[in-house]
Design a protein around this nucleic acid. Sequence first.
DNA 1: GGAATCATGTGAT
DNA 2: ATCACATGATTCC
Length: 295
Amino acid sequence: MTLAFDIDSAAKIDVTPEGSDYDIVRQVIEMLSLDYREQPSLDSIAARLNQSPTQVQKVFTRWAGLSPKAFLQAVTLDHAKRLLGDEGLPLLETALEVGLSGPGRLHDLFVTHEAMSPGEWKAKGEGLTLRYGFHTSPFGVALVMVTERGLAGLGFCDPGEESVCYADMAGRWPHARFIEDRTATEPMLTRIFDPARWQGSEPLRVVLIGTDFQIRVWQSLLTIPMGRAVTYSDIAKDIGQPTASRAVGAAVGRNPISFVVPCHRALGKSGALTGYHWGLTRKRAMLGWEAGKVG
DNA sequence: GGAATCATGTGAT
DNA sequence: ATCACATGATTCC
């Protein structure tokens, strides 16, 4: 794996298998979605990126499992509604019975989660040691944070923004100790982004650090399967507070373990993507990437 | 239809 | 107390 800071100088290097793809992919997604009205052609996009159309097509498809055109379709309102809508099956509801600290097959990663006690939360990380590291990932630079009990934080940024990203994550537990330790975080990362290794024998351990309300919301998110989505009000209903959809939005936005706790699968009732803490483009990218893995 | 407006729960200050 | 929200429904043009 290449360190994030090395990448920018080396857009042409094709030695790094997946991480650098995202640089191109991100820009393609941005263009496609920014002026999607005009449906810009592959040629014009490639031209703006100083790449050949076939190169762009190839990189994009390798990354997403979907051609740029199919990708665009996968993130339209239409498709989003399909992710939300059909069959009105329970989707949520089931897994909350598992309760705290219960192991279960949640999400598509095999995840066990436990929550910090309210006391531990009030301490704002006092006495807690977090090891962290920056890595390349399919969605840009990833900041991983772990405790002895499991994965505690996962954030994203573009190359060059590492310090902002770190401040964002570290600020959530002001009294915790932070130690840079890439060897501790790396195995976690490779496992998370390799769907082939999901559902393995060893569950991925995850530690939810937040208020009671937030943890209920995050648990609810964990039960959304890949390739499906729910609305903020669905979640509100699921946790027994049907009028709290807005509060749910706020809690979803504070999710410290993005992607693993699939907050990108929460959409507005209309199917609009509404927002994403690490940038809407990344939310689109995750949704489209998953569409490629599931289809 | 689309803009403006309200009711709303939570968490930070 | 007050305020900002990754919402959603209603009410006006």
